[in-house]
Design a protein around this nucleic acid. Structure first.
Lengths: 192, 192
DNA sequence: TGCAACCGAATGAACGTTCAATTGCTAAAT
DNA sequence: ATTTAGCAATTGAACGTTCATTCGGTTGCA
């Protein structure tokens, strides 16, 4: 695939992201995506078999981009530093890319997610890196031996909730709140 | 409004809930809602001005029902007991009423929520009871003085994340995970 | 008698998808 | 170096379907 193709595909992705944020899955016709991306309607069907495939691939695109970003972390840091660093990078990334955040949220809570869950394994999105990171901490005796879903619920759940609060305007002084949040979680899962 | 009206309206609500869970906002035609609820299409328009209004009112209906349920708590309990009790009741309620849970999630992350956010104040859904509960704890010196959004991010964020984990099948032994989760949060926000 | 509740076929607009035609590029053939 | 063949990329009008909404008529209760 040459550069031009990538550009077109990404233009379609970016337009879909923007429009779905404004109007939702329904309320975003293919024709509108096309004109926003400066391509013809038919062109979208050259890259994607259907609207569903476009949305499903966009989800993968968003997840991969996010995971690549947050795990781009200096290896020399201590585990605790990484624990804080990755969390802050995730929150920063979502706040700076609200469209990606809200698209992922919308996708997760829609029936789409159930469809792809059966066909794609976590490594497809790079989602198992989080698991590896926690496993590493537990094996090193740094993190309490609580289950992976519990850790995820705290770590990711708090991050996404925080981003929602900020987006909805419930959070003015977000700096203090953020620091409190990740510190509370660290204290909760840290061994002693 | 007499009983019959309530029944019809609730039948429409319940059918909408079921179908939107299976097929999303798009993918759920009014005609399908009508036949599922055993009413004519036109009847829906006797109760709701449009599909958007139906969905928006269903959201309010779900929120009110949920809040009424979780705050139905014995006044004689200690604050700590209430803290655990309300959280567990919320998780139990969502797990027992997954349709309500997923509909609320879907609604929150859709453009619908932004629309109603401007017109309805929190008390409309009973959403300020959570704020009151935390404020009570802070004033009594039981809860650390962290911001309300921080508390919500932890308390509600962890609950919803947990329910998602269980629903997606990432959680086998949920009992231990649940107890860990709320205990970690309590330790984190408890004063001393 | 009157009005609210209810019905469901009809309407018309909107939408996902198709397709026949055109353009642009690449590389083999001359 | 120029031509040519062929395929990928692109176009947007047209198609057929689906869907939200309307409305004229019916039922049933007060």
């Amino acid at each position: 695939m040459n550069v031009q193709l990538l550009n077109k595909k990404e233009a379609i992705f970016e337009s879909t992201l923007t429009l779905i944020n404004e109007n939702g899955f329904h309320g975003t016709p293919m024709s509108q995506i096309a004109s926003h991306a400066n391509v013809a309607t038919g062109t979208i069907y050259h890259y994607f078999a259907s609207k569903d495939e476009l949305i499903t691939e966009l989800f993968a695109y968003c997840r991969v981009k996010t995971n690549e970003h947050i795990f781009n972390v200096e290896e020399s840091l201590s585990y605790k530093e990484k624990f804080f660093y990755i969390w802050n990078r995730l929150v920063d990334y979502y706040l700076a890319n609200k469209k990606i955040f809200w698209f992922i949220e919308q996708f997760y809570s829609s029936p789409y997610y159930e469809l792809i869950q059966k066909t794609k394994d976590p490594s497809y999105y790079g989602a198992d890196r989080m698991r590896m990171f926690f496993t590493e901490g537990i094996h090193a005796g740094i993190i309490r031996n609580v289950s992976f879903p519990t850790l995820i619920s705290l770590y990711i759940g708090a991050a996404t909730s925080h981003v929602k609060m900020v987006t909805y305007g419930f959070c003015q002084a977000q700096k203090q709140g953020r620091e409190d949040l990740i510190e509370i979680i660290w204290n909760g899962v840290n061994n002693k």
